[in-house]
Amino acid sequence: MASAAPANDLPLFYNQLEPLSSQTHGSWKARNMDAPTFMVGTHAVPLTVEEFAPASRFYPIVFSLGDQPVPLALMALNEGVNTFVGPDGRFTGDAYIPAYIRRYPFMLARLNQNAEELSLCFDPSSGTIGEFEEGDALFADGKPTEVVGNILAFCEQFEQAGQRTSQFMKELADHKLLMDGEVTIQPEGADQPFIYRGFQMVNEDALKEMRGDTARKLIKSGVLPLIYAHLFSLALIRDIFARQMEQGKIPAQPLRVDA
């Protein structure tokens, strides 16, 4: 149901990474990506904690499996499906678009393991950066333009939000608040239910058992509102299932679905 990094060990969506350089890309331009076609078959996208409030209005927020789980916005319940994106890659309606999507094809990365600073890199396979006649110049007289400055600022904000998200996930792990999730949906007229697994969620019973200094610490740190945003958003899982039904994107047989 919820998936993590792709097989090439690069972050989701990224096929290659290349550092942006005035020497190599001095005449290159960036053009807008009106339709992120890579979203057509993507059912789950990473979120930062700053996005929990707006994202929870549209998507169930769950957590990936593994030793280093991350928050995910579910745009469908089955891999290879996205109920918020049309065949052309355009978002339908006014759904919130996660910052992870808006950051692509750029990101900050270390050029080698020993590097202390992060460098602005991009995915050259995105088709949005190159020696185009149209688009916004990335460099002028060998110096980064305002376009690059804005991209860099956004990527830096994203990295900072990522650090706060990592701290939030550490709090959940330290207090043993995560558990394996399972959702059973029995459509009317179906012989068998759909059973969705492959994600984590906050254990409400463990949350209710928290007392004293521990509970006060969660409130003071701002973790508790984030937890409740996650828990409230889980009610949308059935809405997402209904969207898949309406769009004909449900598996042919109502069997168990583990991801």
Results as ranks from 00 to 15, higher is better:
G142R: 01
S126W: 11
A153P: 05
E209I: 01
K176C: 11
P254V: 13
I219N: 07
N8A: 03
H43Y: 08
P98F: 05
D258R: 12
D141Q: 14
Y96W: 08
A173I: 11
I195F: 12
P46C: 07
K249E: 10
P98M: 07
E246L: 13
A173G: 12
F154H: 05
R243D: 11
L120T: 04
R164Q: 06
T214A: 15
F241Y: 11
L177W: 00
G222C: 09
R57W: 09
L111T: 09
G248K: 02
W28A: 08
A252Y: 11
M107H: 01
L20K: 01
F84P: 00
G222A: 09
P71M: 04
V147P: 08
Y228A: 00
K220G: 06
T128G: 05
A30D: 02
N82F: 06
R90Q: 14
N112K: 04
Q68S: 10
N114W: 07
F154D: 14
D94P: 03
A215I: 02
N82K: 02
S233A: 05
E182Y: 05
T24W: 10
S166E: 12
V183K: 04
P193W: 01
G135K: 08
H25S: 03
A30V: 12
Q247D: 09
Q157I: 13
D180Q: 12
L10W: 02
E209T: 00
G26Q: 10
T92M: 15
K220T: 09
Q253N: 08
S233V: 04
Q192M: 14
E131P: 03
M245D: 12
A252S: 15
A259F: 12
A115D: 13
R110M: 12
T48C: 03
T42D: 09
Q247F: 07
M179D: 06
K176Q: 15
G86D: 14
P193K: 00
L138E: 06
A30S: 10
P19N: 02
